Amino acid sequence: MTENLTAVLLILLINALTFGAFWWDKDAARKGQWRVPESRLLWLALIGGSPGAVLAQRFLRHKTRKEPFRTQLMLICAMHAVALAVWFSAPLWAPIALAALSFAH
Rank of each mutant, 00 (worst) to 15 (best):
W87C: 13
L13V: 10
F69C: 05
A53E: 05
K66M: 06
A29C: 02
A28Y: 12
P37A: 13
I11P: 00
L73Y: 08
R35Y: 07
A81G: 10
K66D: 04
T64Q: 15
R35S: 03
G20N: 09
I14Q: 07
H62I: 06
G49N: 08
N4S: 12
G32R: 05
T6F: 09
M74E: 07
A99Y: 14
H62R: 09
L44R: 07
L5R: 15
A90K: 08
W24H: 14
F88C: 07
L12D: 11
I76R: 11
A16Q: 06
G52I: 04
N15Q: 05
G49S: 11
G32E: 03
M1I: 10
W24F: 12
A99P: 04
L92Y: 13
L12S: 10
W24E: 00
T18S: 08
L5Y: 07
G48V: 05
L9D: 03
Q57A: 01
F69I: 00
A16G: 04
V86P: 07
I96H: 15
I11N: 03
A53N: 10
L44Y: 06
I76W: 13
E3R: 14
G52N: 08
R65P: 02
L98Q: 14
A81T: 11
L60F: 00
A53T: 04
K26V: 05
G49R: 02
G52F: 12
A21D: 01
A78G: 06
L17Y: 09
F69P: 04
A97E: 03
G48Q: 03
A21P: 02
L42S: 13
H62M: 07
L46C: 12
F88V: 13
L46D: 02
K63T: 03
I14T: 07
L101P: 03
V86L: 15
I11D: 02
A21C: 03
A56W: 02
H62T: 08
F59E: 04
R30M: 06
S89L: 13
S89E: 00
I96Y: 12
L60T: 03
R70E: 05
A45S: 13
I11F: 15
K31A: 13
P95K: 04
A21I: 01
A45N: 09
A97K: 08
P95F: 12
M79V: 08
N15A: 01
F19D: 01
L73P: 05
F88W: 15
D25E: 00
L44P: 01
R35V: 09
A85N: 07
Q33G: 14
L84V: 15
R61D: 06
L55I: 09
L17I: 09
L73H: 11
L12T: 08
G49D: 04
L92M: 12
L41F: 07
